[in-house]
Design a protein around this nucleic acid. Structure first.
Lengths: 254, 254
DNA sequence: CGCGTGCTTGAACATTATCAAACAGTGTGG
DNA sequence: CCACACTGTTTGATAATGTTCAAGCACGCG
């Protein structure tokens, strides 16, 4: 019922094998040598992007972009996980989104970054200069449409989260979050009825994502465990014992 | 400090003079007769749009699009005001945005509308068939970039509202809302210190926009009035007596 | 004039935050 | 290798913010 509150992902499986600590410039051939586009829109855009991007590694905790800095680059996650953060003057924090492989970020900020992005696990991101990125959009109408589609998906996800924050209870938010997390892991074809995931973020991050406090998040998870809806063998390892119950909670059937 | 939580507006002053009850098809000349683009990007896109749009009037309370219906059209507000609504099964409601002149809507929904849009005042909207709209994007890279910019702006506004809903108090939300409303009215060049606006929406709409209840909204407005920060000569007429105080509240300085 | 809808105000209540303390896991240094 | 410190998590008690329920008010309309 709920759509996934994470940034939409593209479907190109260009799995980078770059290791942490290594840097690789993907801009190899000059533009006049690139092949004439023949494949599907997404493939062509992906190829164009690869030409102008640079893969960068970030260790857990590292700062990728900082709110207020000049928005010179656009990024795409290849590996790992990051968080996109907005801060208030008095220290209150809100996590706009968790960024996972194939998610873009920095796209919507045309002059200055409106949020800080930090790695919550060792990560690899591909960096594109905004100039070359805009050049791509200028030349290729398909690229524009492609990114329009991506940003529209993000907008739709953001609006789902507005409803979540504006009108749902703490327990409903938690259930929605867990379901979104597990649905994002559709690739892991585990047998139904015994699905499990490893959360890449800590309680504090979950709290700041759901607009709650760490204590409430902890209590809600304990509550779900006591109801045998989930299990928590370790802090970040969640086993889904009763997915339907979560969906009921999500739908408002306490 | 807060960015305006309304949809971004384009800058083309193509003020329609169509009256309520009238319908006008703007697609006059066939595409091969349209002039070669020479003006700025926005102007060209606006001209293209005018060619494929149909102006439609909606009376106060009328339904423009309904959540779940096939997303056949894209719209742009010309006159009046509308609300974009998401509903939960049990009746809880959230207002994603208020739509004012020059705002687009329906853009982000590619297959099915994800929200209901209703007129909260008599309104005129221009309707574009998605097919012709997509055709425009296909042909003209500038159109794609133009709308990418628009949707990015909306995304950024939505993220501001996520922070607002996730981390701000009721009073802070109210102050932010009032400031956003008054800033949206920058065209009315009233003398500083005595700015006033007429709210197009009722208390219930404000509540569903800020994630509060009608009673809380009412109490907050009374509170601000008793503090001589605003005045309310009639229910929807707000006079700003102390804008700085509102900005302080917004910034977290109670 | 009386009804209806939307707004305001009050009192009791619920949910979630805050404050506080204990606990678990991990890495460090003796 | 163990004790210690550090950070993140859990749990409990208390408090605050905002909701719910209830009643009265104001404005517009038949």
């Amino acid at each position: 019922m709920m759509s996934v509150p994470f940034r939409v992902a593209t479907n190109d499986p260009s799995s980078q094998t770059t290791r942490i600590g290594e840097e690789r410039n993907l801009a190899a051939r000059p533009s006049y040598l690139r092949p004439v586009p023949t494949a599907s829109s997404n493939d062509v855009v992906a190829a164009e992007l690869e030409r102008i991007g640079t893969a960068l590694p970030y260790a857990r905790g590292a700062l990728v972009i900082e709110e207020g800095n000049s928005a010179e680059y656009v990024f795409k996650v290849t590996r790992g996980a990051l968080r996109s953060v907005r801060l208030l003057a008095d220290g209150r924090r809100y996590i706009t989104s968790f960024l996972l492989p194939d998610d873009f970020f920095g796209l919507a900020d045309t002059t200055v970054y409106s949020q800080t992005v930090e790695a919550i696990a060792d990560a690899i991101v591909i960096r594109y200069s905004r100039r070359s990125f805009e050049g791509l959009l200028e030349r290729d109408a398909r690229a524009g449409r492609h990114f329009l589609g991506l940003v529209c998906g993000e907008l739709s996800a953001a609006q789902d989260r507005l409803l979540l924050l504006g009108r749902k209870s703490a327990l409903e938010r938690m259930a929605a979050f867990l379901l979104a997390m597990v649905d994002h892991k559709t690739n892991t074809s585990t047998p139904p009825g015994q699905i499990e995931i490893e959360l890449p973020m800590n309680r504090s991050d979950v709290a700041d994502y759901l607009g709650l406090t760490v204590e409430t998040v902890s209590r809600l998870l304990s509550h779900l465990r006591s109801r045998r809806i989930i299990d928590l063998p370790t802090t970040n390892h969640v086993i889904f014992l009763d997915r339907e119950a979560l969906e009921d909670i999500c739908a408002g059937n306490v």
